[in-house]
Design a protein around this nucleic acid. Structure first.
Length: 414
RNA sequence: AGAGAGGUGGCCGAGUGGUCGAAGGCGCACGACUGGAACUCGUGUAUGGGGCAACUCAUCGAGGGUUCGAAUCCCUUCCUCUCUGCCA
């Protein structure tokens, strides 16, 4: 959630920032009004409550002293009745405020480039030259068929469309990648965690998936549980509603989880192959950081993800997202896009974001800054998306006969 | 899943309708004592919101109710422990 006090005190500046993310001024003006209304409603209610409390205290005192309370009772009853509409007003004001506030995206960082969509993203650099093939490189689904690696039909039979089954060496390669990623992250100082793959609604609100993006989530029927769309949810919310000591920062965590997404709104996109599935594996990094150190941790996370791709010999490019392409919670995001020779294009394989205090405010993650509690900054990033790495290996390491080499660094894992 | 017990501040633990945001202890911080330390003594020590100072509101697992007044009574729910059942 954005800082409403900041919005109130710096309205012009705040609205200019959110325009980068396509938030209309009317929404912000509405938000400001709702915030003021809530404050006024609360002030009125609180003074009535203060009155009530002090009269109740007096009531007790009279009882003890054996004084007559009938007159006082009349006053206190009247005040109580007068409080009912005030209470109702305050409750309504709060509901109205949060309904809007929870749906407003994070401020983009000042450094974020202007732009509408991914066309306006800025390429920062390219790492490794795409390999020249002396034959026409195939796309991963063709290679999968040739090698019997991916069973799309049976995935659909077992679940539904956008599910698949990995077989044989592909299944082993998937497992090898998970282990390689986790080991690498651990060596960089991330603690390895194994977390629940279902989280409750409060946690999903903490990281920003709820309430706005409920349609993208798989919900467990009859339970307050959702299948996680990314390990960012359980890892970040490890410290939900907690206060850390300053010396515990930064908390660096990594974990492997499957991720479950309904992919609502992507009908017809990437239907062929394994690029966009309802279930995919990912190894995630999450950092809970001191605000002053989040930039350097962000750089470290980007570098780590890029290093993993380099170690695998996969050509990729580093892209800074423009304001219009930034996700809901992110203040800043860098994507890593891996080269897919079969598709003859770069495709997203990792996304690293600094959400600053946006998630921390929702999830109430704070640290002791001297005597005061301050919100932490939270960062997350993939290192890496496993299924897409598998695809990238297939396309980049293919031979003319359709066979696939295993990258050197993965051989100890297979 | 069934039966019973219980959830109070960083921790332990008292509190069964008003003087309780909460005794006492431990821990922690600061100060005194000391050459230094331990011991001892003194002081302080939850969170969030509004004014942003005085002050005030909320919070004793969570939500709702009774009452002038609830940590204390009632209802719902979650969690923990013990026993039974069931399983990896």
């Amino acid at each position: 959630m954005i800082d409403l006090k900041y919005l109130q005190n710096n309205f012009e500046e705040a609205s200019a920032k959110l325009q980068k993310k396509g938030v209309e001024n009317a929404t912000l003006e509405n938000l400001q009004t709702l915030f003021t209304t809530l404050k006024e409603a609360n002030a009125a209610l609180e003074s009535a409550k203060a009155e009530q409390n002090s009269m109740s205290k007096l009531f007790g005192q009279y009882m003890r002293e054996g004084k007559d309370v009938t007159e006082l009772k009349v006053k206190v009853d009247a005040n109580k009745e007068a409080m009912v509409p005030l209470q109702e007003k305050a409750r309504e004001a709060e509901e109205a405020l949060y309904e809007v506030a929870l749906a407003v995206p994070n401020f983009p960082d000042d450094s974020v480039p202007e732009g509408m969509d991914e066309e306006d993203n800025v390429e920062l650099k390219r790492v490794l030259e795409p390999k020249m093939f002396n034959f026409e490189p195939k796309e991963h689904w063709a290679l999968a068929e040739k090698n019997g690696w991916i069973d799309f039909e049976r995935g659909v039979k077992l679940a539904k469309s956008r599910f698949s089954v990995l077989r044989g060496d592909a299944a082993r390669l998937e497992r090898a990648l998970i282990n390689f990623f986790l080991d690498t992250n651990r060596e960089k100082g991330f603690e390895e965690l194994c977390v629940p793959f279902m989280n409750n609604a409060q946690m999903l609100q903490g990281t920003g998936q709820l309430p706005k993006f409920e349609d993208d989530l798989f919900k467990i029927e009859g339970e307050d549980l959702y299948l996680i769309p990314t390990a960012e949810v359980p890892l970040t919310n490890m410290y939900n509603d907690e206060i850390l000591s300053e010396k515990e920062l930064p908390v660096l965590m990594t974990g492997y989880t499957p991720c479950f997404r309904k992919e609502a709104g992507s009908a017809g996109r990437d239907t062929r192959g394994m690029i966009r599935q309802h279930q995919f594996d990912k190894v995630e990094m999450v950092a809970i950081a001191h605000p002053d150190r989040s930039d350097e941790i962000f750089e470290m996370m980007v570098q780590n993800a890029s290093d993993i791709l380099t170690a695998l010999g996969l050509p990729h490019r580093v892209v800074e997202l423009c304001g219009g392409d930034l996700g809901f919670s992110a203040a800043r995001t860098i994507d890593l896009e891996v080269w897919l020779p079969g598709q003859n294009r770069y495709r997203e394989i990792s996304s690293i974001s600094n959400t600053k205090d946006f998630q921390a405010r929702r999830a109430k993650i704070r640290f002791k800054d001297g005597k005061k509690n301050r919100l932490v900054y939270t960062l997350n990033g993939s290192a890496l998306a496993v299924g897409r790495t598998l695809i990238a290996i297939m396309e980049n390491y293919q031979n003319e006969d359709g066979s696939i080499e295993i990258p050197e660094v993965l051989r100890p894992y297979m």
